[in-house]
Write a protein that binds this DNA or RNA. Structure first.
Lengths: 131, 131
DNA sequence: GGCATTCTGCAAGCAACTTGCAAAATGCCG
DNA sequence: CGGCATTTTGCAAGTTGCTTGCAGAATGCC
């Protein structure tokens, strides 16, 4: 039977608070440390793995790095080429996915089950600073 | 002035032959070895880097791993959740990207410059084998 | 041939995870 | 309580997949 887990609870808390979007393990870890707690990266890793396995988190891989966010209606992301910032898009760009499925099926034989879309662009600041 | 490079030429050759889609460095390396050549992964890495720098290859990152394919009109991919196979889609799903740009700009402030879309699904074989 | 340049293989370096292990915590039961 | 079986953690070591540094082998060009 699961027992209280300070690290896991703190991680879940951070993710749910929504102060930021799509956290990397390192960011979560840094934040925990910054807020005075003490935890190892491996514990944070186990925490997100645990939560992810239970479907409470969604895992997004951007730029080769894993990021986690609370499970919620699917949405896509934009990534800034200048500074790497990641922002959520209002909603899922591929609403038309349904109509797409049969096409893909016909063309490739694959049965589509989902997708991950990451737009690339420049965030407001990088646009201004000409980065 | 560049001199003949057996490794690089062999890599470019493999990629162009199109026997497979979106090769990873390891796959390219294995194939070279399998066909009797001798080459180091680092050489393959340098080969794709070289070709990519010259715009002859496109780099796609799927599942945290880099893959390369000959530069050609943009298209997206489907990845099999069962076996990891990657297949190209007939064309770019986001043809409507243009219409999307202003929306994203308005909603997030980001100026969109491109995207990478990877659908997930099951390849014919994995569907049949119930994987 | 003599040289300056390019390739290459080998081995070491990195980043981001993942795991193994043993110690510290807890809950439960007698 | 006290004893035990489970969990949760930190620490350190192991993986994976690139990346780099270096020195030696190859070549093209005098």
């Amino acid at each position: 039977m699961p027992r209280p887990s300070s690290v896991r609870d703190a991680v879940a808390d951070l993710l749910r608070r929504g102060g930021r979007h799509a956290w990397s393990i390192e960011e979560l870890h840094r934040e925990l440390i910054a807020s005075g707690r003490r935890a190892d990266q491996s514990s944070v890793f186990r925490a997100v793995t645990y939560l992810h396995d239970r479907g409470q988190l969604v895992r997004v891989v951007v730029d080769g790095k894993a990021r986690y966010e609370v499970a919620s209606p699917h949405h896509d992301h934009v990534r800034c080429e200048g500074c790497g910032a990641l922002a959520p898009l209002p909603g899922c760009v591929l609403e038309g996915l349904e109509h797409l499925e049969p096409e893909v099926k016909a063309g490739t034989g694959f049965a589509v089950t989902g997708h991950q879309l990451v737009l690339t662009g420049r965030c407001p600041r990088c646009q201004r600073d000409g980065r």
